[in-house]
């Protein structure tokens, strides 16, 4: 399935949700609007990269996201109710190999909902995200957490080359023997 097809299907779904009911008039109107948009945006039409979705890793990713969101709010509640909020802020650079622009966007959005982390800057070439943390312990810990997020996203949506590139970069920057990079 190509990405332009997925784009068209999502737009049609949003159109039908906005109109509220699935009648012939709504469906025909939605198809007309979607076709007009695809004609007007040649970049989306020509990209056509195949879309990969693996359901098992996707469910793990959704479960991880829900756990993160609950943990983020619990941590926020603890910090807010403290008499004097104790913050040690820092900005950490996290290189992310193997990320297409879509996966990079997804990583940045998921990092925004992770406990104590917020993306400040996202760069495309080479893919890098700069993360602002509230409770800084060590740069390696932050990087490991975000690499874990990236690996889960690639396991659900990425091509095999991307997963291999990500694993290769992680092996050089974070050797499993535990030596600090």
């Amino acid at each position: 399935m190509r990405s332009s097809t997925v784009f068209a299907a999502m737009l049609l779904a949003i159109w039908l949700l906005a109109w509220g009911s699935v009648t012939w008039a709504n469906v025909v109107g939605g198809v007309v609007v979607v076709v007009a948009l695809l004609v007007a945006l040649p970049d989306v039409r020509h990209r056509g990269t195949p879309v990969i979705v693996r359901p098992g890793p996707l469910i793990r990713l959704v479960a991880h996201y829900l756990r993160d969101v609950i943990a983020a709010n619990a941590q926020l509640a603890r910090e807010v109710l403290r008499p004097r909020p104790r913050l040690r802020t820092a900005i950490v650079r996290v290189p992310l190999a193997g990320c297409t622009p879509e996966v990079l966007t997804a990583v940045a959005n998921l990092v925004a909902m992770t406990p104590g982390q917020m993306p400040v800057e996202v760069e495309d070439d080479p893919p890098v995200v700069y993360v602002h943390v509230l409770q800084f312990t060590s740069a390696v810990a932050v990087r490991r957490e975000i690499w874990g997020l990236r690996d889960e996203l690639l396991a659900a949506f990425g091509t095999r080359e991307a997963i291999a590139a990500a694993a290769a970069e992680r092996a050089t920057l974070d050797p499993p023997s535990g030596a600090a990079p």
């Binding site: 913050l87 040690r88 802020t89 820092a90 900005i91 950490v92 800057e121 700069y130 800084f136």
Partner: peptide, 12 residues
């Protein structure tokens, strides 16, 4: 922007 510990974006 008050950053306490390291700031790796500033070098960039």
């Amino acid at each position: 922007s008050h950053v306490d510990e390291i700031d790796e974006l500033a070098e960039r």
